[in-house]
Design a binder for these strands. Structure first.
Lengths: 238, 238
DNA sequence: CGTTCCTTTGACCGTGGTCAATCAAGGTGG
DNA sequence: CCACCTTGATTGACCACGGTCAAAGGAACG
């Protein structure tokens, strides 16, 4: 039988679903659960290698696979009727993409650099999840995280100036991406950044110049951004 | 034991999770499952009545409840640092909101009209879901739908003109809201529409005037929009 | 060294934001 | 029933941010 007390105290955080019937786990062991999902995915998934600028998912094809980036950078995107491209997100090593659930809402995906990707068939995961509450809880957790991430982007796109967007992007990448103490190595082109932020390539370029000019950053080799004054950046982000 | 064949054929559509171990359900019965979730929610939830313009969820409070609108209109929103407000979505009768999973990503919610709302404690749902794969699958389905909806908004906000946004909004409301064959009754103010579309109230007003002027719509009593030429609207939406 | 691709820079312009005034619609009380 | 007030919507004048178009600059590659 299920011991309710452990579940009830967790509000609805998806991690609560990790508590399986007849098993009780303290919060300190959740991390292990997350690792166990990883092990499962490595077990039931296969590794694929893609060269740079190659499409992994085509728009409106069956969304029957889940992908985990092992190395490299991938982006999801949608091509609009006027030919412009909106990037849905950048996925770095450790990130999972392909969390769409069809109904005609698939995003395409392509590699930005050479990439090593773990590919998992969703039906296998679903079979696991239907028997294993921990698995189901994890899928929910992943989807919820993605939802939160996209909601943040709505805020960014609707009411931030070009400068705020670019600064926000740099800070985000320095948190997530290949970055040393005070510099980031951007793996994507200016065009990618523009399509991600809902700006044009020219505006991105001009904004970066302005940031460099006011002493907040320094640009070397185009893709390498050094932070001169992180506090000023945070302040410019609002 | 689980009979795999039924699960495997469903790719990863969350409905696949509805198939419980030791039970096999054809696709035609899924609708019934969805209704069963409704019955559960009514069983374990309580009904609340809120007057118009009252806050139901306060930003950054514990996200421990799920809400289903029975009557009236509710919106979720976030107040930005500069005082402006971004509306995350409008929720009409039948819609569910509060699908955030915390980690500091909660949206506030307030009533636009008087509203009758079903309130469900998430921990009770979580307890159900940890034992019942159908329940877990449904939570995933709901979250995935919300994700798809928000992704569509990213597209709308990043690359559509004011006119395209307003037209898109009107068509969306005519599909979802209180609408007759060719008219909609908007329950929200111009300010709400503006905050939803990432525009100003003036731009919304001017755009509606332009649409009326070109013979696409007709406005009576401010909130009632009649469609004169739906085909022209669809065309203006791109 | 030349080609190609990406990025930067410049000049110009349009969409939509800002500020302010006016107008319409309820709601309340005399 | 009508003045009065409040709230929400419209309209106008102006301007800035960022888009567009075009050209030049600079890396990377053969």
């Amino acid at each position: 039988m299920l011991t309710h007390s452990a579940v009830l105290k967790n509000a609805f955080h998806p991690a609560a679903l990790l508590d399986q019937p007849a098993k009780l786990k303290p919060a300190s062991e959740r991390q292990a659960d997350e690792e166990s999902l990883d092990r499962w995915m490595q077990l039931i998934g296969g590794v694929s290698y893609y060269p740079r600028r190659v499409q992994i998912i085509h728009e409106d094809e069956a969304a029957d696979r889940l992908y985990k980036v092992i190395s490299g950078t991938v982006c999801t995107f949608k091509v609009l009727s006027d030919g412009r491209r909106q990037i849905g997100g950048f996925y770095l090593p450790g990130d999972i993409f392909g969390l769409e659930y069809a109904e005609g809402h698939t995003l395409a995906a392509e590699t930005i650099t050479n990439a090593k990707v773990l590919v998992i068939r969703k039906n296998v995961l679903a079979a696991l999840a239907s028997r294993n509450a921990a698995m189901a809880g994890h899928l929910l957790l992943l989807t919820a995280r993605e939802l939160a991430r996209v909601q943040d982007r709505v805020l960014l796109l609707s009411s931030k100036s070009a400068q705020e967007r670019v600064v926000g992007f740099l800070l985000e990448m320095s948190k997530r991406g290949a970055s040393t103490a005070n510099s980031v190595e951007l793996s994507m082109s200016r065009q990618d950044i523009a399509d991600y932020l809902g700006l044009t390539i020219e505006t991105v370029s001009r904004t970066l110049w302005a940031l460099e000019n006011c002493g907040a950053i320094e640009i070397s080799r185009r893709r390498r951004i050094q932070f001169r004054s992180r506090s000023r950046l945070v302040q410019l982000q609002q």
